[in-house]
Design a protein around this nucleic acid. Structure first.
Lengths: 201, 201
DNA sequence: TCCTTCTTTGAAACGCGTTCTACACCCCTA
DNA sequence: TAGGGGTGTAGAACGCGTTTCAAAGAAGGA
């Protein structure tokens, strides 16, 4: 009996898929994208190669699956320890700093995952769409103050822009053009441009 | 005698490299990334496979080279027929519309090229850095009005953000999530967010 | 003209993502 | 107890990016 993934939900993977994802993480941590050889993934997770392809459409699909797991972990972390910033702009910066840190503390893994997400394969669209939605929800939840009302459409547009900036800069990091600190700093600067220096709204 | 590429310059490719790039364009136009098989590129351009690898470090490198060629063509077009918009914001929107159109009129080619640029290979860093610089110069030149002064640092930051938005959304297009019209529209909207609705500054 | 060095060539070889095939297993229903 | 559909497995096979290598040109320099 295999668990069927619900629409919009990131998790809900069966036992085999979980082991496959774990193996992919281990391999990517040490050697990055190229070290995630699907034969090795299969062996390390104790399944046949065909089973890997039964769960994931491609190597990139698998690594985007890893990305989703990271997001779930971060979501739980934010649930237990909310961001501390006074203003929304501060919390925004902290949020993207945490997101960046999550990907950059294990550089090989982060690069592999981002590269996979950036590939732009049509087969990845569905998974990436879900990831995008979940990320947006995560950010919205993380930056909302205790006594804030609902986020406006304007706010959502700004957040989408910031997400784009973040993604682009991460690709720059992946390519060796930027450091994680630069990524964080530049997203924060973009946020200031969008919100005005004061950080109200 | 092989032409040595000057730093910061996109063109200056020798005859063989040019033929290789042309062949890559032809193949990518019809079948996209996967149709650009380097054996075919070599045969179609009349050189040996080793020569292709002498000029380009990888398949992605080759396709980023194609991207640079596109940029050169667009630069010449802007030089002969400047953008017509009244306000800087209008010209900005037109500029990104032209950029998007350039990539999206031949979808297979555009997707292949963007995918290559998004790969985040360290080996591509240098070439992409040059491309990025040239693109920035192109945009700055294209949106400057006849009687404008030099662009401010603030303006450059805003443009960098817009470039990020554009890139991210193009990746979205590549993945089948967005249409070219949506890309253009959303970049324009981001510009309005950054500049304020009026479009001065 | 001969030697040296660099480039190009043709072809083979390697690695790995991806697909395919044949077979075993398990659960279900008749 | 027999049969059948779905899933997993082992392993081979295929395609293509990339590397390697020996041999052939090509372009100076003495």
């Amino acid at each position: 009996m295999t668990a069927v993934p619900l629409p919009g939900e990131l998790t809900l993977v069966d036992d085999r898929a979980r082991r496959i994802l774990d193996a992919a993480v281990r391999l990517a941590e040490t050697g990055g994208f190229s070290a995630v050889r699907l034969r090795d993934v299969a062996q390390a997770s104790g399944v046949a190669l065909g089973t890997v392809y039964k769960r994931f459409r491609s190597k990139e699909d698998l690594l985007v699956g890893v990305l989703s797991l990271e997001l779930v972990a971060l979501r739980e972390r934010f649930a237990t320890e909310p961001l501390q910033g006074e203003t929304r702009l501060e919390r925004l910066a902290q949020c993207f700093a945490a997101l960046t840190e999550t990907l950059c503390v294990r550089p090989h893994l982060g690069r592999a995952v981002i590269r996979s997400a950036a590939t732009g394969e049509n087969a990845l669209a569905e998974r990436l769409q879900r990831f995008h939605t979940a990320l947006m929800e995560l950010i919205v939840g993380a930056i909302r103050g205790r006594d804030d009302g609902p986020v406006s459409a304007l706010e959502l547009e700004r957040l989408a822009v910031l997400e784009d900036v973040w993604f682009s800069r991460l690709v720059g990091w992946t390519g060796g053009l930027l450091t994680p600190e630069m990524v964080v700093e530049q997203v924060a600067r973009a946020a200031r441009l969008l919100y005005g220096e004061d950080g109200d709204a």
